[in-house]
């Protein structure tokens, strides 16, 4: 019995709250290569090289670590087929927002660090012989938050999909809205939803892949509107973050709450797909739908 209890305790740790700021810091810190890393899910100490060789999947518990946009492209599309769109769009600090540092300084810093203007990469690529349009969130850029640029890029991509009748796949990983853009961040939810509506009304397939974590305004627009919704194993998916919920209800949360497996059980997503099989799954799905 004692043996079992120990295992249970370990699993409870899976539901550790996601602290966006800390996650960002961690993501930044991870740029500096360390030899070892700790699995967020099972807390095992892992050899970094081994994890990386394994598609950034924990060899012990198969938790899927967040991966870079470049890796996502490499794992999903045929080599050299991905072409990026709208990279000229850039954010600016239109509210003159300042928290611990000004939003403008934050943006400048991240641009230098990531070489990217904002938190999403859009483009087209091939999966097998099938051409698709795709948006990939970058969690390391302000927690993949939904600002004006993210909203505009995805809207343009969806319009392109409608115009050319090409399926759109969005890989989500986001903490939700971007507070530094205030109401405009909220309105991006509406804007992309309008574009999704127009794409779907024309019968063009819209697929979302939810990766760890997908929260807040991104879940309540882009993510949950997929014609088909796929999630990576153990990804945290929800509207409110677990910390907010715990503070509101003043109770411990049920085991596996807001994890992909929990959402599948409750009928909120279609399937959970291992990263190593994502490309084949998408290919099979698309070729079946499109034939």
């Amino acid at each position: 019995m004692g043996f079992f209890r120990k295992k249970e305790e370990k699993e409870v740790k899976v539901h550790k709250e996601i602290d966006i700021k800390r996650e960002i810091k961690k993501a930044e810190a991870e740029k500096e290569e360390t030899l070892w890393l700790k699995c967020t899910s099972c807390m095992e100490l892992l050899y970094r090289k081994e994890v990386e060789r394994n598609f950034s999947i924990c060899p012990k518990c198969s938790y899927h670590f967040p991966i870079s946009v470049e890796k996502r492209i490499e794992f999903t599309f045929e080599p050299e087929t991905f072409k990026e769109f709208y990279s000229e769009l850039a954010p600016y600090d239109f509210l003159k927002f300042k928290d611990t540092k000004p939003y403008s300084a934050r943006l400048q810093e991240l641009k230098e660090k990531t070489g990217r203007n904002d938190a999403v990469v859009c483009g087209s690529g091939r999966i097998g012989e099938i051409e698709v349009l795709s948006a990939i969130f970058d969690f390391s850029f302000m927690g993949g938050s939904l600002g004006s640029v993210v909203g505009e890029k995805i809207t343009r991509l969806l319009e392109e999909g409608k115009r050319r009748k090409i399926p759109v796949i969005v890989f989500c990983s986001s903490g939700g809205a971007r507070m530094q853009e205030g109401i405009m961040s909220l309105m991006q939810m509406a804007k992309v939803t309008g574009a999704i509506n127009r794409l779907k009304e024309d019968g063009v397939p819209y697929i979302t892949v939810l990766t760890d974590p997908t929260l807040g305004g991104v879940t309540a627009s882009i993510a949950m509107l997929g014609d088909i919704i796929i999630a990576e194993p153990k990804a945290m998916i929800g509207f409110a973050g677990p910390r907010v919920i715990r503070e509101t209800i003043k109770e411990e949360l049920p085991p596996f709450f807001q994890r992909a497996e929990y959402l599948l059980e409750h009928g909120m997503i279609d399937m959970i797909v291992d990263r190593r099989e994502m490309k084949q799954t998408l290919h099979k799905m698309l070729s079946t739908i499109l034939s």
Partner: peptide, 18 residues
């Protein structure tokens, strides 16, 4: 923000309403 709300698809309901 509650357990039941999440369980029954708060995000889906908001997205679908929009």
């Amino acid at each position: 923000p509650g357990v039941g709300a999440e369980e029954r698809g708060q995000a889906e309901a908001i997205a679908s309403s929009m």
